[in-house]
Computed example of a mutant assay.
Amino acid sequence: MSDTTIAAGRRSRWGLFIAPVLLLILAVAWSGFWFYAASQAGVAADAWRAQEAKAGRIYDCAKRSVAGFPFRFEIQCSGASVALVSQNASKTPFTAKLDNILVVGQVYDPKHVIAEFSAPATLVDGVTQNTFVVNWSKGRSSVIGLPAVPERASIVFDDPSLDRLDGSVQVPLARAKRIELHGRIAEGSPADHPVIETVLQVSQGSIQGVHPLLAEPFEADTRAKITGLSDFTPKPWPQRFREIQAAGGHIEIVQSRIQQGEMIAVAAGTLGLSANGRLDGELQMTVTGLERVIPALGIEKMLEEGVPQATLDRVAPGVKSQDLNNLFGALDRAVPGLGKVIKQNANAGIAAGINAIGTESTLEGRKARTFPLKFADGAVLLGPFKVGQIPPLY
């Protein structure tokens, strides 16, 4: 065998080892990169927690681990907890505990982060010391744009429920088949004054213990725009609301639709904040089925049992409960049964009064009324009737 033949054979055998060696080098390099990036993910999480703590939102994990090699990053937080301090006008603490949070990011798309939440969550109100339990069958969120300013975010819960603990008994407060909240920076909005577009959808929602009307299942779809933000720096919510008010910011309800059985309500308008942190603004509403809603409010029963002053202060400021009850008594003495007739027809009178507020219209092929729902320094006004009071946001 010639020397040339022997040399060619050696070169061919060396060629067999080149690909595996290169693959091994690439694997070692990739492993080094993954473990370095995983450690940096922990550093970034700690930095984010430190920023949030300065804003009064203290996050913690009883145990944190990183996995997902080789193409994903999976950060698992077991025994998660958050303490919210200075996040409302009363600056009272609010704590929440969660079994587990799993955060997943792909190596090839690190700006997109997905999280899954394990139920249940326990909430404790620092003022009343009431304890609430939140449950769901599936909870997840998605954020795009990290670690810089998020471009869009979503959070979805299937079969969520909210209960209040009364000793060892769970008292139902709210239920839904599905809740979705989506938000994104509006296209073309300036970086120093971003406009946020949001969508809130509730499927088969219900609220117990407040009013029988709210206990019946309803569907809700609300789309809004928020202006007045200057940045996304972590800060307490009262401070954020003050900045929005000072900048003349507002929430524009672009479209809102709520349906409960035969009753349908749509609304649009703009809400802002007064100097003392209360809602100001007006929504234009169109409602079908008012004739069903008014009797369900129980006004007739309220009048038969006597009208508490607190109720009158809410629905008719300035009117005295004793004066009203004396009026019905005087009517009965003058014309026996007259006061009772008026009481029994109270619902019809209130309905007529509300019908006089707005104008006739049509909504989705049904007869409806269109009228303004006003917010004046926190007071909620349906025409001349005060129907609620919203506490200050700071």
Rank of each mutant, 00 (worst) to 15 (best):
F218Q: 04
I75H: 12
W14S: 14
T222V: 15
H182R: 13
P212Q: 05
V335Y: 11
D332R: 06
P150M: 05
I185W: 14
I155D: 06
P93D: 04
D377F: 01
S274E: 10
S78W: 13
I264G: 03
V43Y: 07
Q170M: 07
D332G: 05
F73Y: 05
Q309H: 02
S39M: 01
I101K: 00
P238E: 05
R369Y: 11
Q259V: 06
P120F: 00
C77R: 02
Q129S: 07
N135F: 03
V287Y: 00
F71E: 11
S168P: 02
G337Y: 10
L102M: 12
G329I: 14
A45R: 11
Y108D: 10
G365D: 10
A47D: 07
Y108R: 15
F218G: 05
E305C: 09
E291H: 08
A267Q: 02
D158V: 08
G9R: 09
C61T: 01
Y59R: 11
I354V: 11
I207V: 07
Q40F: 06
V82G: 05
L102I: 12
A268K: 12
D231V: 01
E187H: 08
F157W: 10
T198R: 07
N276A: 14
M302N: 11
D3W: 09
A330G: 03
V293R: 09
S141W: 01
A379W: 07
V21M: 15
A47V: 03
Q170K: 14
F241R: 05
T122V: 10
N135E: 11
R49Q: 14
A348H: 11
F241E: 14
T128C: 04
L338E: 11
Q260N: 09
G306V: 07
P336A: 00
A275G: 08
R11G: 06
G42K: 12
E305F: 13
A27W: 01
K138V: 08
I25Q: 02
A247C: 06
N326P: 05
Q255W: 06
K111I: 08
P384W: 05
R152M: 09
K111N: 13
A268T: 02
V104P: 12
R10P: 03
L393H: 13
T5D: 13
G249D: 06
L213I: 06
N326I: 01
F33R: 08
V199E: 11
L200Q: 03
A334H: 11
S90E: 14
I207F: 01
